[in-house]
Amino acid sequence: MKKFKKLKISQKLKKIVKNTQVSPGLFSNPCHIEVNSNEEAIIEGCKGVLDYDKNLIRVDAGKMRLLFAGKELLLKCLTSDSLIIHGKILSVEFQDLKSS
């Protein structure tokens, strides 16, 4: 019953956000990604690293997975809720957990 109520509230909030064109990060706490050229990506609000390879890094971003593909990728810094990826980033893919 409680879960159902929560879902209802969140759906209503989403609707308000959509109608008022307010930034989505205002009410929820989504993942914030900042990309500098194709050399550096700063991810805040993530939950950890799932896969780490020189050519591919998979990051847990809560409701979705982020997939950074590139060359000579390096985790420049890693903290509990943020990380910096350095290297030549070729593509960024968003995987929605619900759809999969």
Partner: peptide, 26 residues
């Protein structure tokens, strides 16, 4: 190794310049 890194970071230990070497070596 990835899980180990995540847990280390969550326990308040900061790590930087994590490089992937050959095989499963970091």
């Amino acid at each position: 190794a990835e899980r180990f890194l995540n847990l280390t970071v969550r326990s308040g230990i900061n790590i930087w310049k994590i490089e992937k070497k050959t095989g499963k070596l970091f």
